[in-house]
Write a protein that binds this DNA or RNA. Sequence first.
DNA 1: TATTGTTATACTCTATAACTATA
DNA 2: TATAGTTATAGAGTATAACAATA
Lengths: 147, 147
Amino acid sequence: MQSISEQCAREVLEVVPLVMRVIRSQFRKYGAPELSVPQFRTLHFLSQHRGASLSEVAEYIGLMLPSMSALIDGLVTRNFAVRRTSPNDRRRMTLTLTERGQATLRSARKATQTYLAEELNRLTQADRATIIKAMQALRPIFTEKAT
Amino acid sequence: MQSISEQCAREVLEVVPLVMRVIRSQFRKYGAPELSVPQFRTLHFLSQHRGASLSEVAEYIGLMLPSMSALIDGLVTRNFAVRRTSPNDRRRMTLTLTERGQATLRSARKATQTYLAEELNRLTQADRATIIKAMQALRPIFTEKAT
DNA sequence: TATTGTTATACTCTATAACTATA
DNA sequence: TATAGTTATAGAGTATAACAATA
């Protein structure tokens, strides 16, 4: 039935931005106030793609190379990431997180997750189970498009 | 059981940003490429709060007054919104959407919703029902915090 | 020549400080 | 005096164009 898809889409379109707004504000508050959102996303990407090149990160984040170069400068200067020239191809940059970068990512994530867990605790057990199932259904659809 | 809340929080924290990313890119692509995200959120707020003042919008969007004043300038110049001095209190600005502003909001919303519905159509009917229930459970928790 | 990244420069968005108009 | 908003100005973050180094 098409109309169920429509209703489902409408709900997702209304509720997901609300949830995202809270996630974002928590991230800022307890996570890493000294990092911009794109910088934070970059840390996240690098944590899952050790040694990625500047171009690869830029494509994922959606920035042009000069902008990403500047963004990485900021991370390197403040010791969140390390930038080395690749031994294989000396044009490429090899980007990795420092221990500080990893720790920042972990703690921001943990703080937000704890906050969410407290909020979700106000629901019934059945509702939480439903939410878990819903997220598991949504994940594969939206994972493809997010690289 | 606390651990179910934890698991639920983890799922939400991983999946919601993925969905949001797709929503945002669709909004940009088919909705209103000529509007920034804060401008778009402003249209949305004004559609639900006709005649809001500059201060009210600024607080909701999270901008300082001069920044919001400039943002509104952009909307007014391009005929998305109208700014009048309030008759009651001539210090206040009364902000409303133009027909163009309303139409832009509707069409962006519709385009995104249609896209989402197509994607959700790939799931089973049961999954879609689960998602609807999950969104309905999440909505009240996160609505409070989003004004 | 083609690819990877940086430097130079300009524009947009945001903030703080100072100001104007109204209450 | 206090409040609502604007103007002046400066700092981030982003883009395009031109360049340097490597393949």
